[in-house]
Every structure is written in structure tokens, then in C-alpha cells.
Write a protein that binds this DNA or RNA. Sequence first.
DNA 1: GCAACAGTTTGACGATCGTCGTACAATAAA
DNA 2: TTTATTGTACGACGATCGTCAAACTGTTGC
Lengths: 101, 101
Amino acid sequence: MGFHHPATEDLELPAVLHALSDPQRLRIVRGLSADPEPRPCGAFDVNVSKSTCTHHFRVLREAGVIEQRALGAARLNSLRREDLDARFPGLLDAVLESVPA
Amino acid sequence: MGFHHPATEDLELPAVLHALSDPQRLRIVRGLSADPEPRPCGAFDVNVSKSTCTHHFRVLREAGVIEQRALGAARLNSLRREDLDARFPGLLDAVLESVPA
DNA sequence: GCAACAGTTTGACGATCGTCGTACAATAAA
DNA sequence: TTTATTGTACGACGATCGTCAAACTGTTGC
């Protein structure tokens, strides 16, 4: 419950880059960008266990890449695109537009 | 001596992001961007030991962020800006233009 | 109430990371 | 030929990482 979301001005570049440097998390962010509709953790194409999933979403949240909002038992995840663009202009777009490999 | 530099088309986003996610390496890249003149490892504002320095330059090189060219005993480091821009347009600029914290 | 569902917490595991010191190789300068 | 200078190679160290399974909390629905 103690969901900590860093303030926009507290976002740190190394933390954001590290959060984005993992393939699984990159896939989460890509999915969230393709369809910005906030949705629960289970609704992502991530083939790892539940606990690993929790871990990845926490890394993304604590770096300030995503926002997690509780809705009942679920956690609605959304991209903090505005905050990221304000703090690191062009970064998210550059990451997302890179050839999907 | 077996300096391995990945080909442009082999650059991988997670590896590049990981290479850039360390403060020391970020400082190296920033310095190399501020003054693109190729220069030896010792000419950087990095306060770690020699061996750690070698390590950081290798991570950057193997991710394809920098190029290392031997000149006598020294290793001339330069930014692979064109290759990075070709493979991940806008990424390096976004990283470098983010507020220097 | 009870079962199913959605995530978290904890603890563990091997792997990688950032760091160092020492020893080494190669070049440059004396 | 010595003696610096520049950087690499090789362990080593504690810390963090990505992963999992098991147990748990909280919600939804019967």
C-alpha cells in the first residue's frame, strides 16, 4: 500500500535508464505506450512469475516511469508520459521509437 | 587488444540503456559530447581507480556507445554519435540534454 | 461464509555489477 | 637501458539484480 511515486522534479536519469534497460520492463512500457489505457499488472505480455512481475512494476514505479493506482484488488498501471517528457524531453519517445528488434 | 566494437545494426537498446544508467559512465559520455575531441581515458573527470575506469570504458565500448582506438600506449575514446543516432534516433540527444542534475 | 482472483511479501538462488589492489604489458621519455 | 606513463588482466569483495516458490492480504463474487 505504501506506493511511493517520486515527484516529477525528483526523477533521476540513471534510475530511469536502469528501469528501461530490462527487456521485460521495456515490453511493459511499450505495451503501455501502444495502448495508454490504465490496466492491471496481469494484462501485460510478460512471461515471468507473479512475484517477478510485482518486482518489475515496482522498479518502474519507483523510477517514476509508471504510476500505480489501486482499484479494488487490482493495480492500474499507467505511463507517466507527461512527467517524463517534462523532465527528460524526448527520452521516452526515443526509447519507444527505436526499432522493436 | 581484442577491442570488440559491435556493428551499428547490432546495437541493442537494453545494453545501451544499461551502459548509460551509471553516473560515472554518464559523466564520461557527457564530457565526450561537450568536447568531441577523441582523448585518452585519463582525460576524464572520473574519480575511480584505474581498473574501474577500464571497466567503465569497456562497458561503454561493448554497448557501442564509444569507440576506442589505440594510439601508442593510450586509448583514444570517441562517441559513436552517428551510429547511435542511426540506430536510436534522438536517444543520445535526449539523454545528454536532460538537466545536468 | 467461502472460494476465486489480483498482487504483495518474504526468503532464497545464482548471476551480474561497481569497486578495488596487485601485477602485468606496452609505449614514451630520460 | 632505465624509468615513467597508460592502460589491461586477474582475482577478490560486498551489493544489487532477475528470478522463483510459498505464504500471505485484500477484493470480488457465489
